[in-house]
Nucleic acid binder design. Sequence first.
DNA 1: CATGAATGAGTCTTCATTCAT
DNA 2: AATGAATGAAGACTCATTCAT
Lengths: 214, 214, 214, 214
Amino acid sequence: MTQATAKKPTKGRTATREARRQQLINATIDSISKRGFSGTTLATVTKGAKLSHGIVNFHFDSKESLYVETLGFLAQEHYDLWTAALEKAGPNPADQMAAMLNVDFEQTVCSAKKLAVWFAFWGQAKQRPTYLNIHNSFDEHRTSELKRLCSELAKDGGYDHITPIETTRSIESIIDGLWLQVLLYPQSLSRTEARKNCFNYLACLFPKHFSRCT
Amino acid sequence: MTQATAKKPTKGRTATREARRQQLINATIDSISKRGFSGTTLATVTKGAKLSHGIVNFHFDSKESLYVETLGFLAQEHYDLWTAALEKAGPNPADQMAAMLNVDFEQTVCSAKKLAVWFAFWGQAKQRPTYLNIHNSFDEHRTSELKRLCSELAKDGGYDHITPIETTRSIESIIDGLWLQVLLYPQSLSRTEARKNCFNYLACLFPKHFSRCT
Amino acid sequence: MTQATAKKPTKGRTATREARRQQLINATIDSISKRGFSGTTLATVTKGAKLSHGIVNFHFDSKESLYVETLGFLAQEHYDLWTAALEKAGPNPADQMAAMLNVDFEQTVCSAKKLAVWFAFWGQAKQRPTYLNIHNSFDEHRTSELKRLCSELAKDGGYDHITPIETTRSIESIIDGLWLQVLLYPQSLSRTEARKNCFNYLACLFPKHFSRCT
Amino acid sequence: MTQATAKKPTKGRTATREARRQQLINATIDSISKRGFSGTTLATVTKGAKLSHGIVNFHFDSKESLYVETLGFLAQEHYDLWTAALEKAGPNPADQMAAMLNVDFEQTVCSAKKLAVWFAFWGQAKQRPTYLNIHNSFDEHRTSELKRLCSELAKDGGYDHITPIETTRSIESIIDGLWLQVLLYPQSLSRTEARKNCFNYLACLFPKHFSRCT
DNA sequence: CATGAATGAGTCTTCATTCAT
DNA sequence: AATGAATGAAGACTCATTCAT
């Protein structure tokens, strides 16, 4: 009986532990993006998830722990996306670079909602090193991949003025900066325009591998 | 004029009042940079200013109002610095551009303390449009000046592929992105290295006007 | 009778039920002695009993009801011990008195664990008369037996200054007071020393029947 | 003007810090005696003091801290009473002993209210060593004075069977035990009867110095 | 019978704001 | 102008109890 095997994982009084946790994490992302950190309370989260008040402390140790896991979820999601894209991209470094950076301007990553949460966390990173550590633990791999690609592209194109470390940093910076502008001025900068802007910078850095798009 | 040296009694009071307000604004910057928005209370501010608990609501309408004026102070300070630098820079567009961007990596602007406050505000910008409006009201002028300089440099250098609007945005983005990295990873990126990184981007954009520095 | 060895199915269930209840009562005693009333929750009890969270309300009407039955168990245990000891003691009043009081300093009664629970209940007795009633319903018989023994010893020894009621009260008091000291200062007063102290008081009251021990 | 010097210390919006603290401590004693530890909340305390909810954390670090200071107040009060009584008593050891023990059955110390609080604290002493430490820090002096008096009385009366340490403990025990009975059964044992009972024990211990009272 | 997810009333604590002095 | 005591709303967290499975 196929009917018997079909479970409703998230409805009803008792859901699986994982489903509830994810539900709460999603509601946390929603609330932080709408109300910011200071406007987000356990009440706004649980109300958003249409669950009761006390459930957070049943599934998470504390509000702080919910935040940590929310950030972890975002970081993991991003990580999974770019590693998958990189794998699909084939052996060509330029293709790999393009694949990685494309992810940063996809809907899943570069939405107003997600960006708001990222910058909310970064706005607290100085005070809560935990947040920074989570971000770093996922991002180090990405930085090293970018550096490798910069090296390979520089060698391949004969750009002897390129310093991989510095160039990597500038690429990461322009992405973060474009994200901030997409967040703050969504009317004047769409994510597709931001992507174009980013790739035009690549064209500026690696003219033999990337061409300007208009 | 002997009259000018004679203080009017109201002037003395006003000066004191202004001094108190500035004292509180400075303490607010300190506290936000140390403890973030969520850790900053009127108590941490007044304690930092070595003033009494209840004084904030005497000099400011509310906590929110103190925050707004703090952000206004930072925006004004930045504005005053780059407009003064621009004025001093002479008629040459490349010099003007350099002068403007240098300001962004000066100690006064690009300190861990100030950057922490800027990103704290940006982390809330989505939720509190007031903050964004303050920032914009000061920043529009800067954007238009950058755009003008991009245009003049493009014309002068014959870079026909340069779109001033897009290029301006990319410059602003890389600065914001570098600021974020200076904030999050002060050990691996000093503000002088960040400045160099930014100017190397200019060298990439306008090779005839700026040269790479190593 | 072969029939007797065949268990009735309901009997097995009842036994299990009783075992569960006792298991929970024991865990309650453990938890109160370790964490006190305010630190004891149904979670600490069920965790101690290695049972699931929701089981208490299945076997007891409420937390309060569990407490009442826990106190009842302690009172019954004490009652069973001293009545058994009294029965064994023979007809001599001094022997009977000694038998009764010995029980109060036995391991089963005078352990740190049990005393902690007793004083926890007494600390609430004023506010919850139910607790006091349970205690009284068991203790009245003991008080009357002590009074009888005081009378008999007084008559037998010719102590005409002994008032049975008052003497009984003083004996009960010194026991309670010694219990408190055993509870609070187990290092400086062991239960065997406490027992000796109590019996030396008896030697003081009834010098012809009890002799000092050193 | 005598009128001008008269302050209302506890009325009005702002009272002296000490007055408010004492007011809250008194309300805490009231609430613990009426409702026990588990029934006492900051709300019952502040309601009893006719003050607002948030004031406790303004004058005390926490609820726990309020409890600690409440116990400290009770211990200090008792200490002050018996040291004063001892001083007034003159050089005679029997008078001194009588003076000290009289205090334990005075209205101020031996009221239903105070005893309820003492036993509430003792019921928690095992779990919160802080409470025990406070009690001990005040009580050690009392124990040593009692021991000294037992020694002097034993020498003076030639009671060679008296061990000061053990006798002291028995006196302390009978007092604690009588307190418990006054607390639990105020109808059957008044504090004056309890006092008599205690002094008859002294008469039993030191027949040459104390005589039975009926 | 038993489990453990879910609920929601209740508690401690924080903190912006008010206000007597 | 300034202080700091006082207020009360709001938030995080606890926990007895309920109930679907």
